[in-house]
């Protein structure tokens, strides 16, 4: 093989190793990436093609990502585990709220026109409305001090790593609010009797409906999708991207932010409260979706998409629960390590 051929083969191997490394999270790549790539190159030389190797790298890369999200039993150092736990919790709650708000907006739309006759729809709507209010308050109570601390830290320490995710969060949030305000005027609840609103004020229900317009069964009915106005269709694509940008930005800020004790305690307690509040919300949604007989009360009839939303919310809640356990376990481990150090120094 000529020198040029050898160089080409070596460069191709490097590119392949770099591609395989993408399965792993950035922090893992920073620590192990170079030596792992070297091992892969040696392995390529012995076994040029191996399905087992490709599957092994993919599976372990995804496992490393789950570990970083606090979703495996493999423990990370407590401070890192706590920050990652909050970031995971934030993503899980965002997914839960997105599907939950879409479902509640659907019920509120029906309630604008008539009172639900079935006990499951009525009870579900009430339970979801109260729990949603609690959840929004809890999220705000956590997000405001966290955002304030992030802003102060970024300004005082000139921490450039916080600027990009914070920028993404601000841009995405602005797009989401402006777009939602624009599209909420087309809320299907507008024009109802106005006498029977349920527990959700019409303006808030309209805002919830417009912000979750993309959670729609229209995606599997291209003919219906084609009849929608172009701006609305564009919003159905842009709004989930804005939600993802907002949540990813916030999660990245939390992951990179050194959390002081008071904020950690505050967020830990709020995380438990959020999971507790999410349970009656899910219960209310389940009582509506699972107990309402098809065919009755057209406005409150659940469809397949509601079953999907319910499953997604249940999954998000399980992830959130695991993240909360990981946070509290890490806090306990941090506390016991601190006590052990104190005992050692006093001895």
């Amino acid at each position: 093989m000529s020198e040029a051929d050898e160089r080409r083969v070596s460069e191709a191997g490097e590119r392949r190793a770099a591609r395989m490394l993408r399965w792993y999270p950035r922090s893992w790549r920073e620590r192990y990436g170079e030596e792992f790539a070297e091992l892969l190159l040696a392995d390529f030389a012995e076994q040029p093609r191996s399905l087992r190797r490709a599957a092994d790298v993919a599976a372990n890369g995804l496992l490393a990502r789950c570990t970083r999200a606090g979703l495996t039993s493999h423990e990370l150092p407590p401070a890192e585990q706590i920050r990652l736990g909050f970031a995971t919790l934030c993503c899980a709650l965002a997914a839960f709220l997105t599907f939950g708000v879409a479902m509640l907006a659907q019920l509120a739309t029906g309630w604008q026109w008539t009172t639900p006759r079935s006990a499951s729809a009525l009870g579900g709507s009430v339970a979801m409305s109260i729990a949603a209010l609690c959840l929004v308050l809890i999220v705000a109570l956590g997000a405001v001090p966290a955002a304030w601390h992030a802003a102060v830290t970024a300004v005082r320490s000139h921490d450039g790593r916080l600027v990009r995710p914070a920028g993404l969060m601000i841009v995405s949030g602005t797009v989401l609010v402006i777009g939602t305000r624009h599209f909420q005027n087309a809320w299907p609840g507008t024009g109802g009797t106005g006498a029977l609103h349920g527990l959700v004020p019409a303006g808030i229900a309209a805002f919830g409906w417009a912000s979750t317009l993309s959670v729609s069964s229209f995606w599997v009915h291209p003919a219906v999708l084609g009849t929608l106005p172009r701006p609305e269709l564009a919003w159905m694509v842009v709004s989930p991207l804005a939600v993802v940008g907002l949540v990813a930005g916030f999660a990245a800020v939390i992951r990179r932010l050194p959390l002081p004790g008071w904020l950690m305690t505050c967020l830990s307690r709020l995380s438990v409260a959020a999971v507790v509040a999410a349970v009656p919300f899910l219960g209310g949604a389940a009582s509506w979706v699972l107990a309402t007989a098809p065919g009755r009360a057209v406005l409150f009839r659940p469809g397949l998409i509601n079953g999907g939303e319910l499953a997604a919310m249940a999954l998000a809640l399980v992830v959130a629960l695991r993240a909360v356990f990981a946070i509290w376990r890490a806090r306990a481990s941090r506390g016991s390590a601190g006590k052990a150090t104190e005992r050692a120094s006093s001895a």
């Binding site: 792992f36 892969l40 040696a42 372990n60």
Partner: peptide, 24 residues
């Protein structure tokens, strides 16, 4: 290092650890 570990383990245990498993 990683590659030497793979070869040594293959020699004494007859098991070839795949790179992902080894590094995890």
């Amino acid at each position: 290092h990683g590659y030497a570990l793979t070869k040594d383990i293959e020699q004494f245990a007859g098991v070839r650890l795949a790179p992902g498993t080894l590094y995890e």
